[in-house]
């Protein structure tokens, strides 16, 4: 995808991505890129992504798996000489790409995030057992069994330490007002979408 060097994409990012208005403030020093503990796994460093946004490389940015690598360690924010909230921008970009359906398929961070979300919104509590199993079996039954066998020792250990309860398979624990939680989440989404100028998801 060739760069256009028009501001369209930058403006789109500013309008739709959390803290996107900071992208233009980067001065390309690269301290974020060097500070990231997962840096070597990034195809494009944050500072380079900012440059790509300014260059108008919409598809390349939004389909990139780079921002999905962020583990929120905040090293980049602490060190950025221009005080860009880089971590937030990365998550914002990922979220925007996800909303647009451009996020890379099968990207593990995204998968785990989705499973975690689906898991927690159901009851308002994380069901560790179901979450783990969902992870193991996400690539099919056969692979799931293999994964579960491989993690057997840890699972037993967790059970012994009372950190994992097999009874959780049967519905599991929940918060007091499940309906209330659902309402709260719906409301939060509505507010966020309104803030980003979107109408629904």
């Amino acid at each position: 995808m060739t760069a256009t060097y028009k501001n369209d994409f930058l403006k789109e990012v500013e309008a739709n991505v959390e803290d996107g208005q900071w992208v233009k403030m980067c001065m390309q020093c690269g301290v974020c890129a060097g500070s990231c503990p997962l840096g070597p796994h990034w195809q494009h460093s944050p500072q380079k992504i900012f440059m790509m946004i300014r260059a108008g490389k919409r598809e390349e940015v939004l389909t990139s798996d780079s921002m999905w690598m962020c583990t929120s360690c905040y090293n980049c924010i602490v060190r950025c000489p221009r005080k860009l909230p880089i971590t937030h921008i990365m998550h914002g970009l990922a979220n925007y790409a996800h909303r647009l359906g451009l996020a890379p398929k099968g990207q593990p961070t995204r998968e785990i995030a989705k499973l975690f979300w689906d898991n927690i919104v159901k009851t308002g509590r994380v069901n560790e057992l179901k979450f783990s199993l969902a992870m193991y079996f996400k690539d099919g039954f056969g692979q799931g069994v293999k994964n579960a066998m491989a993690m057997q020792g840890i699972g037993l250990g967790l059970m012994k330490a009372k950190r994992l309860n097999p009874m959780e398979m049967l519905g599991g624990h929940t918060c007091k007002d499940k309906g209330g939680i659902h309402k709260m989440i719906a409301k939060a989404r509505e507010i966020e979408d309104r803030r980003k100028g979107l109408s629904g998801h």
Partner: peptide, 11 residues
């Protein structure tokens, strides 16, 4: 020294 050469992204 750890960092990234930003001219072309070299760690």
């Amino acid at each position: 020294l750890h960092g990234v050469d930003t001219e072309g992204y070299h760690r």
